[in-house]
Design a protein around this nucleic acid. Sequence first.
DNA 1: CATGAATGAGCATTCATTCAT
DNA 2: GATGAATGAATGCTCATTCAT
Lengths: 218, 218, 218, 218
Amino acid sequence: MSKYNLLEAMKAQAKPALKLTDKKQKIMETAVALFAEKGYSNTPTSEIAKAAGVAEGTIFRHFGTKDNLLVAVIVPFLKASIPSMAEELFTELMSHDVFFFEDFLRELVRDRLNFVKENKEIFQIVVKEFLYNEEIRNELLPYFVENIGGRLIQVIRVFQERGELVSRPAEDIAKLVVTCIAGLFVSKFVLMLNGTADEEAEIETIVRFVMDGVRKRE
Amino acid sequence: MSKYNLLEAMKAQAKPALKLTDKKQKIMETAVALFAEKGYSNTPTSEIAKAAGVAEGTIFRHFGTKDNLLVAVIVPFLKASIPSMAEELFTELMSHDVFFFEDFLRELVRDRLNFVKENKEIFQIVVKEFLYNEEIRNELLPYFVENIGGRLIQVIRVFQERGELVSRPAEDIAKLVVTCIAGLFVSKFVLMLNGTADEEAEIETIVRFVMDGVRKRE
Amino acid sequence: MSKYNLLEAMKAQAKPALKLTDKKQKIMETAVALFAEKGYSNTPTSEIAKAAGVAEGTIFRHFGTKDNLLVAVIVPFLKASIPSMAEELFTELMSHDVFFFEDFLRELVRDRLNFVKENKEIFQIVVKEFLYNEEIRNELLPYFVENIGGRLIQVIRVFQERGELVSRPAEDIAKLVVTCIAGLFVSKFVLMLNGTADEEAEIETIVRFVMDGVRKRE
Amino acid sequence: MSKYNLLEAMKAQAKPALKLTDKKQKIMETAVALFAEKGYSNTPTSEIAKAAGVAEGTIFRHFGTKDNLLVAVIVPFLKASIPSMAEELFTELMSHDVFFFEDFLRELVRDRLNFVKENKEIFQIVVKEFLYNEEIRNELLPYFVENIGGRLIQVIRVFQERGELVSRPAEDIAKLVVTCIAGLFVSKFVLMLNGTADEEAEIETIVRFVMDGVRKRE
DNA sequence: CATGAATGAGCATTCATTCAT
DNA sequence: GATGAATGAATGCTCATTCAT
């Protein structure tokens, strides 16, 4: 059995208990900043306590274990990680004829870029722990594959049928698209390889790359 | 000053001292396996010692510190990480007219895929520590950007002049290409999202995605 | 830069925080006894912990490092090591005509003898570490020379002008006097070469030796 | 039973085996320098080996243990520490009437000063370990008291009978004289509180202090 | 004799967690 | 709820000593 049970935690946190104590809130904010900066296992609870201005015992009163603190911090992010967009689009696509995959892709990238930009630190934590911590990876990987990959595959299939997308296996296409977008986000928000300041141009670059690759056409 | 000085270590290890003791060799092999599996900082030296069948002191007699053991394991990999290909190709391209970027890309992917496949565990270590360990990242990032990015940019420029590649900034193209390939390698060798068994098909999929994207053409 | 910064520590410990925890107090007492008996570097923290009836971690919670424990134990002693007497006497001497150097010396010896007797163990620690530990010596030597030597020299000069003391350089006289007294204290409290039980007689012996040497006079 | 048995070692080393190997000789010289500088327990055998240009094993081949190396280095010094002078003088004094205690003292100080000056480093070692290492102290203290103290007491008694020295207990006088001389040697050769460059003047200062104290006489 | 790889007990220090107040 | 002193297992590292070559 897993030490983390992130998915259990996600279900449990259905009602996100908006009434966070001042202290509890402060601990979480501090933990996010420190985990993002130095990594989970390089951040002692003593340092979190000090930076948050609480006693070390208080952390354990609220979260029980350090692991639980990580979970508490990560779960709301994970729940918001699934682009609801994809599902909405899919429903819509089935009924009306709307727009092009290129437009969907553009909106998807824009949407996720904004989401990650607003949750930069937690994104860093999730990426780092996802790779570093085997248990977390084992918990999250199926979740991502199913929820994100799965929806995207459905969307892709629709556009393939319409003839806009190549007819390779939708799984392969989804994987390429996700890897490409995720890779660029990691590069931008974790490795801090800052590209252009102009965000719209950046989005356009990604979209055109994914759609048409690097070959010149006349 | 950095704790690691990986680049210094790389220069110093010019002649890799092939005369590795049995024990030293065993320690390194064991460390590679454990670091890859659980991450550097989650692997106690005591466990390495036990798994390698040596006394803990032996590790420190050979490597001095745990950090040095990591460096000793990583450095040869890093030195072989720069695709000499790119440089050779670049020289060749300047003199004769040979082949297409698509062919270059195919060879590059094939070459690096084989390299990483043969060094799977060390690749896992490097990827994980690269993201998790700030000092290592700070050491390696400029190295990668300059050596890998730099060479690729030069190659791209040549093919742009020949009209095979789109005329967006070569830096952007290089970044997209590298991110895409790196992302797929991470997905395959670190996250273990196994794709097709047919490797040639896999290479072809990447090449076609990078060259032409996902849009259908008649 | 020094590892110890004893003088810094002395300034910092201005208000010695009388509210010592039971445990903290117990640790310090135990450490004093063990350091005095076996020397600082021959006393493992584990042994201190065991003898003090606390967990080893508790030592580090209170003192951070073993070095700091030594400092915490030594500093109050050092601050009380300067005989305020000398300074007071000096001021007094400048205004009124009071007593003889012989009387001053007798009081000085009596005062310091009592002080060391009451701090026997810490005196042992200081003497041993002073000789054994280069860094501690480098920290303390200038302090002693200036504070103890300096004041004594001033006193000696006054009595030289009054014609009670020989007119050799005051520095030389001070050095002889200090060496002689310190040597006898070390002999008594560190080497445990117990002299007479009669302390007053002991003091008188020292004073007469310093004043008149060993030559018989009629 | 003692770990050291210095006295046993002294007896055993009766014939000092002049045929010291090159390596053995080099090890001892290096050990002397390092022990004097950093103290016995702060000097790893590995460092001695390196500095001496031998393998670490070689030290143990020759000396068996690190303790034995210390003993090997110290013992010849200890054997030469007893001023044969005192004994010779005593024999001489019983037969003829020669010179004054003051002259004896002057010669004693000169003789020991030269001895220590020529064996400065071993003197440092002996002083430091004598204070720091209980076992060594327990071994050497009785030896010093008996051999050095004992002889001096006899000499003093003779001069007391002749009326040159005060008639306090000879033991007390001996102790004062030894403490005073030893203290000044420690101050000069261990603490490095350099006095005058003029050695004869220094000797004279000590002699006059011991003989007549600090009181001015007309 | 000499070597140096190997050993493993021992050490200072860290840190998540507990619990009495 | 909040505190922070106390815990003790775990960790990286040191070093005297052994032994096969």
